[in-house]
């Protein structure tokens, strides 16, 4: 029997609001896809693949996103565990310094980082695209929060069984942090995949350029002469892997996001 009380009315209205929100968010994507098929033809996609080395750009983006994600996960988990569980002098201050870096806009870091890349002779190489991106203060913060809520009894049992700190982290804590790792993984992947300004600045040639920078080459000097169907076709192609990653990891993602919401 259907309930007709105030509860079901609230559910109805919340669903209406959610539906409106979804429509609002999906609208730009629909517009993008519609523009990419002018008069229902796939001509824009053919032009896109003829104009740009899309395979090459996609491979570069994939490589950068995967390597950055793996690097971010390992470093953030290690640092987060250290801040949550280890005791050393100046820990709070060091963590505070980490948090401060979250307040600094990335544009401010760009110039010194660029100089550093030049000193290392990493300009126009994969190193410049991957390595600076794997140090994530946000990642360290997220993982620390997770490990702080992690049951100490499990670690104590591991110590009693003769595990070292490293073994406890690697064999016990890290595998059980899967939801937080998945969340951070999705964030890191999307960040690396969508990154535009940094790859634009440190790359000069097509051989190391990523998809967003490659797509920007479709932009002409003046807005009036941009081939919008081709640009929209490029944007459509470029979001597919991100959508795929999110669909695969969404359950773990939601669980991971919720982990920071409460503190034991």
């Amino acid at each position: 029997m259907r309930s007709t009380g105030p509860q079901s009315l609230r559910t109805f209205w919340s669903q209406v609001i959610l539906l409106l929100g979804s429509v609002l968010m999906l609208y730009p994507f629909v517009v993008m896809i519609v523009i990419s098929f002018p008069h229902g033809s796939t001509e824009a996609y053919s032009r896109l693949f003829q104009t740009l080395p899309m395979g090459w750009y996609t491979w570069n983006s994939f490589l950068v996103a995967v390597l950055s994600t793996i690097g971010t996960l390992i470093l953030s988990a290690m640092a987060g565990y250290g801040f949550a569980r280890l005791h050393f002098k100046g820990k709070s201050w060091l963590f505070f310094l980490f948090l401060i870096t979250l307040m600094v806009p990335p544009q401010v870091n760009m110039v010194p980082l660029f100089f550093l890349m030049k000193q290392f002779h990493w300009l126009n190489t994969m190193n410049a695209l991957v390595i600076p991106g794997i140090f994530s203060a946000f990642g360290v913060f997220l993982m620390r929060q997770w490990f702080q809520g992690f049951p100490k009894e499990l670690e104590e049992a591991a110590y009693l069984d003769g595990c070292s700190v490293w073994q406890t982290f690697w064999w016990i804590a890290f595998p059980l942090a899967a939801p937080a790792v998945a969340t951070l993984g999705i964030f890191a992947f999307i960040n690396a995949w969508n990154s535009f300004m940094w790859p634009l600045v440190v790359t000069h040639s097509d051989s190391v350029r990523t998809l967003p920078v490659g797509l920007a080459t479709l932009k002409a000097s003046f807005r009036d002469i941009v081939d919008w169907p081709v640009v929209m076709a490029g944007a459509t192609v470029s979001i597919l892997p991100v959508v795929l990653v999110f669909l695969i990891g969404q359950k773990a993602f939601i669980k991971g996001i919720m982990s920071g919401a409460s503190k034991e």
Binding site: T51, L52, T217, L218, K219, A220, S221, I225, V226
Partner: peptide, 8 residues
């Protein structure tokens, strides 16, 4: 240089 695909 800057510019679109045609100029490039």
């Amino acid at each position: 240089i800057w510019g679109g695909p045609a100029e490039k």
